[in-house]
Structure formats: C-alpha cells, structure tokens
Computed example of a mutant assay.
Amino acid sequence: MKKKQPLTIKEAKLKAADYCAYQERTQQQVRDKLFDLGLHCDEVEDILADLITEGFINEERFAIHYAGGKFRMKKWGKVKISHHLKALKISDYCINRALAEIDDEDYQITLHQLLEKKKSSITGENQYIIGKKIATFLIQKGYEPNLVWTLIRDL
C-alpha cells in the first residue's frame, strides 16, 4: 500500500477555503481540519491568518449565524446559545454581538409560545407544580430564570 503524499501548503489552503465556503466555521474547526490533513502548527497558523484576511473565516459572522439559527430553529434561549458558543471557543465580544442580533420582541413572543405549549401539555396538577414544570422546561431551553419566573408569576 502506498503512503499518501503530504499536502502542499497551497493544496491545504484550497481545501480549507472550500471547507469554509461550504458553511461558516470557527477558527478552531478549521485549525482541527488542517491538523487532520497532516499539517504542522506553523503552517496551520499561516493558513488560518490568510483565510481570516481573505474573509473565509469570521467568528463574529459565525456567531451571529449560529445564534440566529439556534433561536429560530430550536427555540433556544440566550443562555444556552451563549454556553454553546463558549464551548466552540468564540470570544465574549462575538457572543455579545450575536445575542444582540436576536430581536427582543421575537424573543418574548417565542418565550410566550413555548410557555403556552408546555402549559397545555401538563394536566391535572396544582398551579405550583405546573409553574415549576414550565420553569424547569424553559430554563433548560436556555431562557433567563428571571424572565421565566416573572412570566410565570404573571399567569
């Protein structure tokens, strides 16, 4: 069996650019991909710098797309989105920018919709147990506990 020839820097940069063009990526995801391709640390960092300069990698843009998608599709709250972005090694600045892009009115509407949906699925319990189950559900979805409890008290 023949041993694979290592990629040249140019080939690796093209592969990484294609990887980034397919969908938004974090610097760490691209770094991991380049290491998987067999490149060394200095080469990886040089390619990363080029990709950032050329606009293939932009963590702020990634964070905004990620936060918007998770909010719209999975109905996640800001707390859960923030934790997941931190796990992806996104800076606090980018996380704050991404969360600021979520419309406050849409956020409140989604929170109310989730509350109503959960409330309708709980039957035959007393009001305190219903409130606790709703709060647990919404907090696990990543909504701020103070918002959740205020909303439940207003019921």
Rank of each mutant, 00 (worst) to 15 (best):
E125R: 09
S121R: 13
E24Q: 12
V148R: 03
P145S: 05
L85M: 07
K4V: 14
S121F: 01
D154E: 14
G124F: 00
D92I: 06
H65W: 08
H40F: 11
N58G: 05
D103K: 04
H40A: 10
K15G: 02
Y66I: 04
K15R: 15
Y66G: 02
V148Y: 00
R72P: 00
K15E: 15
T110Q: 15
Y128V: 05
K4C: 10
I64N: 02
L147Y: 07
D46P: 00
D50S: 13
K89S: 10
S82N: 06
D36W: 04
L114Q: 12
R31D: 07
E24I: 12
K117A: 14
K15H: 15
I129F: 05
K78W: 03
K132C: 08
L115S: 11
E105N: 11
G68V: 02
Q140Y: 11
V44A: 11
S121G: 10
E116A: 15
I52P: 05
E43G: 09
L85W: 01
L155K: 01
D32Y: 07
N58V: 08
A16M: 03
K70A: 07
L155M: 13
S91Y: 05
K78M: 10
G77F: 00
I109T: 01
E101T: 03
Q23E: 14
H112L: 08
N126H: 09
I90Y: 02
K33T: 03
H84C: 04
A63L: 08
I9G: 09
Q108L: 13
F71N: 00
T123C: 01
K80R: 15
K117F: 09
Q27C: 12
Y93D: 05
R153W: 04
G69T: 13
I122E: 03
I102A: 01
Y93I: 08
K118E: 11
K33S: 06
I139N: 01
K74Q: 12
L48M: 14
A135Y: 02
D50Y: 15
G142W: 04
D32W: 04
A98I: 07
K4D: 14
K80F: 05
T136N: 10
R25E: 04
E43Q: 13
D92S: 07
K74P: 02
K132I: 09
T150E: 12
R153N: 06
I47Q: 03
G68M: 09
D104W: 03
L147Q: 14
F35P: 03
G68Y: 01
K70G: 02
S91D: 09
E45L: 12
V44G: 06
E59R: 06
R25I: 04
D154Y: 11
E11I: 06
K78I: 07
K132F: 12
F62Q: 00
L34A: 09
A67V: 04
K117H: 12
Y143I: 00
Q28K: 13
I130A: 04
K13T: 14
K13V: 08
D50M: 10
K119C: 02
M1D: 12
D50C: 11
I134D: 00
E144R: 07
F71R: 00
G142Q: 05
A100Q: 09
I129M: 06
Q140T: 07
D92N: 08
E24R: 11
D32Q: 11
L99S: 01
R97L: 02
I9D: 12
Q5C: 07
T150M: 10
K15Y: 12
L85Y: 00
C41M: 05
R153Q: 08
P145M: 02
A17T: 03
K3L: 14
C20P: 00
D18K: 14
Y22V: 11
E125G: 02
L155Y: 07
